[in-house]
Design a protein around this nucleic acid. Structure first.
Length: 339
DNA sequence: AAACCGTGGAA
DNA sequence: TTTCCAAGGTT
């Protein structure tokens, strides 16, 4: 092992040295050909950052490429309908992000003359832009100094500085943000931000980190004290509650009946099989599926019936133009279209 | 402050 | 199969 034996022997690099070290590493080993890096325009960065919230890079890439083709600029996006926006976002999850991005386009066009601001404070006024995304846009789109703290930075800093405690608690979160502010360089902001994310994603990973390849191994507190697998502190695991759901299926040669869901709750404003409050008596069960959300499990039963209120029958060939929840689309594909 | 809000990939 | 969690934000 490359551990040092004395905890006192470990001193973190000074901010200037830290930044230089990881920027040099990023140049050789970082990610530099991602789709949103080709043209790091403010709009491209905005779209990518909203899509990347709680979503892995490999998942986002095809969505980003399609999005830019359909909505090439802020003005186009601002003029699009909510349905067009949701159709492009369908399957990506956390659908409020799509509506926030749509609102953001309108906000920037009408209130900011079409120009995204270049400071975290102003960017925080944009819908869907929180503390992380504001810093990320500042650094990636404008190459200006900004602290960024996402899951990668939390993990990297908790290990590098040996920070104990729950990184999601407000106290530890503040501590990490303070470090991020203290360590942000005054130049090369874009590459520094990319270096932080690349290190977290490829070296300082949640499990089986590649410490032997890390440019910070000689000054990492967790490595020196053999606590790499103990930091950051794991959050208590949750047991997800299970809910039952019932969906009405009415399909004929003219298409399938869908309803647009409300703006609140799960799958906001997406088009879905009509949801029934309970299992109707003498229900004809067409099929079932299970689905796991971030906060509960869904056991769904699909019932053959004509819903009393729903009236929108959508031709099967037109389904792609509507935003459907991923499991609903899958069910229709496997249990309706293939029959 | 804590709950809500998706989906899929990896081990 | 289970478990974890990913370029978090909003309420």
């Amino acid at each position: 092992m490359i551990n040092k034996t004395s905890q006192d022997a470990i001193t973190p690099l000074l901010p200037k040295e830290f930044a230089h070290t990881i920027i040099t590493w990023q140049h050789q080993h970082g990610r530099n050909t991602l789709p949103w890096q080709r043209e790091a325009s403010p709009y491209h960065v905005l779209v990518s950052e909203l899509m990347l919230q709680q979503t892995q890079v490999s998942t986002v890439i095809p969505y980003f490429e399609r999005w830019i083709k359909v909505f090439p600029d802020l003005a186009t996006l601002a003029q699009a309908s909510e349905d067009q926006v949701l159709a492009q976002w369908q399957g990506l999850g956390y659908y409020s992000r799509a509506r926030n991005l749509h609102k953001a386009a309108g906000y920037v066009m009408t209130e900011l003359n079409g120009q995204l601001p270049a400071t975290p404070e102003s960017l925080r006024e944009v819908p869907g832009v929180g503390p992380y995304t504001a810093g990320a846009i500042t650094a990636f789109a404008f190459d200006k100094p900004a602290a960024i703290v996402d899951g990668n930075v939390k993990r990297l800093f908790c290990r590098y500085f040996g920070i104990n405690g729950d990184p999601n608690s407000s106290a530890i979160n503040r501590q990490i943000w303070t470090k991020a502010e203290e360590y942000k360089p005054h130049s090369n902001s874009r590459q520094y931000a990319q270096a932080l994310l690349d290190l977290g994603a490829t070296i300082c990973t949640p499990r089986n980190p590649k410490c032997e390849l890390c440019p910070l191994q000689q000054s990492c507190n967790a490595l020196a004290t053999d606590r790499v697998n103990l930091l950051p502190q794991k959050r208590a695991k949750r047991t997800l509650p299970t809910k039952d759901g019932y969906f009405a299926l009415d399909v004929n040669a003219n298409g399938v009946i869908l309803v647009q869901r409300s703006a609140n709750g799960i799958w906001p404003r997406l088009w879905c099989l009509p949801e029934l409050s309970e299992l109707p008596p003498r229900a004809q069960v067409h099929g079932s599926f299970k689905h796991v959300f971030s906060h509960y499990r869904l056991n769904a039963t699909v019932i053959n019936c004509t819903p009393s209120h729903a009236t929108t029958r959508i031709p099967l060939e037109a389904l792609a133009q509507y935003g459907l929840p991923a499991p609903i689309r899958k069910y229709i594909h496997t249990h309706v279209l293939e029959n």
